[in-house]
Nucleic acid binder design. Sequence first.
RNA 1: GCGGACGUGGUGAAAUUGGGAAACACUUAGGAUUUAGGAUCCUAUGCCGAAAGGUUUGUGGGUUCGAGUCCCACCGUCCGCACCA
Length: 769
Amino acid sequence: MVYNPQKIERKWQRVWEEAGIFKTSDKIKGKKNFYHLVMFPYPSGDLHIGHWYNFAPADVYARFKRMQGFNVMSPIGFDAFGLPAENAAIKHGIHPKTWTYKNIERMRKQLKSMGTIYDWQREIITCDPDYYKWTQWLFLQFYKAGLAYRAKVPANWCPSCKTILANEQVIEGKCERCDSDVLQKEIEQWLFKITDYAEKLLKDLDKLDWPERTKTMQKNWIGKSEGYEIKFSSIPVFTTRLDTIFGCTYLVLAPENPIIEKLKNKITNYQEVKRYIEKSKKKTERERLSEAKEKTGVEIKGVKAINPANGEKIPIWMADYVLIGYGTGAIMAVPDRDERDMEFAKKYNLPIKKTRLVDSKKIAKKVKGKKITNYKLRDWVISRQRYWGVPIPMVKCQKCGWVPVREKDLPVLLPTLKDFRPTGKGKSPLAKSKKFVQTKCPKCKELAERETDTMDTFVCSSWYYLRYTDPKNKKKFADPKKLKAWLPVDMYIGGAEHTVMHLLYARFFTKALQKLGILDFSEPFLRLRHQGIILGPDGQKMSKSRGNVIDPDIQVKKYGADAVRMYLCFMGPYDQGGPWQPRGIVGIARFLDKIFNFQFSIFNDQNSKLKKLLHRTIKKVTEDIENFRFNTAISALMILVNEMQKQKGLEPEVRPTLLKLLAPFAPHFAEELWSSFAKASEDKHFDIKNSVHNQKWPKYNPKLIKEEMITLIIQVNGKVRAKTETEAGISKEKAKELALSCEKVRKWTEGKKIKKIIFVPDKLINIVI
RNA sequence: GCGGACGUGGUGAAAUUGGGAAACACUUAGGAUUUAGGAUCCUAUGCCGAAAGGUUUGUGGGUUCGAGUCCCACCGUCCGCACCA
């Protein structure tokens, strides 16, 4: 018999699908529900090896949990709205919708070839009206609760994508998607009040089983700091170091600070001030960042502020190193204590004064300071001036102002536009469709206009994990009973790049919906694990131009899906990723081949070495999968198989147990051998109910993993000089005797005085001379 | 600059609480089998050495009977934040 993975895999995928063995029901008697979730993919066109690395080891975990007796739900869907679909569609001259659904079709096929346990009946696609109807509904709930509001705020404008971006989507002053320099622009926008939840988002991190670095990054992003707000004359200032107030020698305002406009009449150099304001407005975010080393500023002449601590008159300056969006947009400068203030003071010859530290609380009382907590987190701008997204369900009426669309009129359908390209004028292409724009006011029924901006895609992905529990519900976004049955998510797996975007937004949504009484839990994802990034064989990021892309389809053709799954698990720690080694997968292929062609005979020996190894392997594989150490789990299986080969016969339980342990990693392979094994041993037709995947995960016998014989390490002065086999539980005295009788040891100890003996039971003895 | 993670053979990597460094693979070499190639099996494979033995976890120091693991300094890589007062 030759191991032919392609044939086997196709066969079993068909059998499983027909039998529906991976369909999930909301309740199974005697089983606990386990919600296992992978971050849903963006329908980019082809499944690349990175997707496989996300989904395959995750599927190993899901299958493992399933065999452990949990009722596992592992759903999949597509995060289908967003800029890339539009950009690709523009490039290829097709409609984003056509492009998206074509890609989904293709990716579905590829996903199925992986042999995952996804329940396809729960599939969701965020650009389906059946889905985004509820995205709009949730927006309306937020609006009613005051969590969605409209405001003219300075926001990040990407001139290439021609839309506003959230702070989280600007990386080093550049657009997260296209790398263009981002400009500051003031437009009226819809925002979500995520800042209301800053404290809760920060505090609740403590109760999550998430990677530490991810929690730290969220903490830093939220950026809490406590301090005081005090007034210098009429100018409020925020400081965390009120104790340094006696060293304050001048004030600095942000150029955008509205106080400057109010002081206009008193300012003697207003022209100069205005020029500076205009200049800093024109700078891109990145220019401001790159100029960070060289500070600039202008004195606001004609006005002075008074330091409330000592009554001193001090000058007021304006500089763009002070940010309008943080604190009060004004600082008290203490050059003696603050490097930045010192640099500025030196450049412009401002006074520098040695400060004496005082008690913050006392001085706060004296200067009437208010205790204030500030966060770096800003409200989430969700308006996008682009076509391929969820229409914001709001109507602007001349008489009534902004009015929400009535719930029964949802969804507000995204019109099919021929020209869907962004306009660049600060309005979405939807504004070009009269049919879409013209509507009646839901309140007064007069003619009115629809909002034409669409929502940030991250809104769609902030709640998709809720919809999976009840994806076809037409009356509710999800049935409360079903939500209760599954949520919160027990295990969430995906890339670390979503740390301050998706993962933060989803947490905010959950908290907001809890407050609205829609959900009864406060955190969506209890446990989180990240996968690393797979690099090309050359150790570089995979890219078409470098020609180092590994196509999973080709690997599957060559070695089979099971080998690809297993190799991805075997290559190293899951969160580390690393280069794909073309030769590496060969080792896995050989391993599977070896098992497939294994010739064996059965015999009984309750205490055989192999049986003990088997139970140790069960223990190791179980613990390793639970801890996402797939690589060492596989190496343990390899050790077992190597030992099996050395033995002349097998204990009856060895083979079936090995197949169970292999089942999560190589599901088709294990099923094939399991079925032929079942047929042979029971001489009846294999029944899918007895599938290896419906077997109970093996348990180890604690008695069998206890060692009776150990290898005692004998050290002299901490150096290994000998090893000896001896029975477990040997006493210190006996061990000493044994050690000193060793010829190799005597060579080192002869004629020397023993100072000390260190004995570690069942492990080692160290003779110090 | 600040914060975090990390640094182990030719390669991917292992290594409970400080206790055998390099498990498991890949690669390479030699051998068996084979018409040949491939596949498979056996042996070897950190470095120096014929061997005995010595030596090895980025560098330097420290704690300890004993350090890849703990502490200090430095070098390097990666990630995140980036004037947040």
